[in-house]
């Protein structure tokens, strides 16, 4: 990696000529001694927030682990009924958006406003693409009566479409597919909610980036948002095989 990861250091923060002895960059809050201290505090704080996110999703992942082992057959059939191609495309879209976000952080670090805006915009577009495909999937599930609740229907699992090699489930086991779909909607729903919040913040960042504050040394907001966005990506990296690919062969 030594060739690729050329480690460099950020440019010196801009210094306002106004103050006398205590010269601070414009973005430094009064209660920090140095800009560096502020940056590290902010980044550490973001990591702690992601820690709470790990535990928030952790509860759902544990529920998944439990029921997948209890009702494996139901989970296989239910998993095979969701559209794997859409899931795969979404994975690629989301990893792509993670890449553009990483590039946006880099653009801010090297103080290139034009590139920063391009990459932020690309991330927004990819985020919307993900949500669009996701809502397509949700629509299919809704049409198939696979949404848990009063209108849930197990017909597709007890009597699979002729021509597919899908195994027919007993009524008892087919009822357990509702657990899968509960978890599917809870996990992807909470994930999508994080995406929506993320896109809203991204648009805000895009708006404020016009003034150039993020490209004059104040990288912190972009960097921290990047951490959040990559975390959302990681959650999906786990959700994709767990929900779409339980037993496809």
């Amino acid at each position: 990696m030594s060739l690729a990861s050329t480690i460099t250091h950020p440019p010196e923060p801009e210094i306002h000529a106004s103050h006398d002895v205590h010269e601070h960059p414009f973005y430094q809050k009064h209660h920090f001694e140095t800009a560096e201290q502020q940056r590290e505090a902010a980044s550490f704080g973001m990591w702690l927030f992601l820690l709470t996110e790990i535990m928030f999703f952790g509860g759902l992942f544990f529920a998944y682990l439990l029921y997948r082992n209890w009702y494996y057959d139901a989970f296989v059939s239910a998993s095979n009924s969701i559209n794997m191609v859409m899931g795969l495309v979404n994975t690629i879209v989301l990893i792509g958006s993670s890449f553009t976000m990483a590039m946006a952080v880099w653009s801010a670090e090297v103080r290139n406003k034009k590139l920063l805006q391009i990459f932020l915009l690309a991330t927004v577009v990819l985020g919307f693409a993900f949500l669009g495909i996701k809502s397509g999937e949700y629509y299919d599930k809704f049409a198939e009566h696979h949404v848990p609740g009063a209108s849930f229907d197990i017909h597709d699992f007890v009597h699979p479409q002729p021509g597919t090699d899908e195994k027919a489930l007993s009524v008892d086991m087919a009822n357990k597919t509702q657990i899968f779909f509960s978890l599917y909607f809870a996990m992807t729903g909470v994930h999508a909610l994080h995406m929506i919040i993320g896109i809203a913040i991204l648009i805000g960042l895009l708006w404020y980036s016009r003034s150039g504050i993020y490209t004059e040394g104040y990288v912190q907001p972009i960097e921290n948002f990047g951490l959040y966005w990559h975390f959302v990506d990681i959650v999906w990296i786990f959700l994709f095989p767990l929900l779409y690919l339980i037993n496809r062969h």
């Binding site: 990861s5 050329t6 460099t8 250091h9 794997m84 795969l88 994975t91 890449f99 990483a102």
Partner: peptide, 24 residues
């Protein structure tokens, strides 16, 4: 503070794509 270069990001993006293909 370090700046990670775009080359690294691009390589990681490649690794992730290969991983996605592999997992599917």
């Amino acid at each position: 503070h370090h700046i990670v270069s775009p080359t690294v990001y691009l390589m990681i993006f490649g690794v992730l794509m290969v991983g996605t293909a592999l997992t599917a």
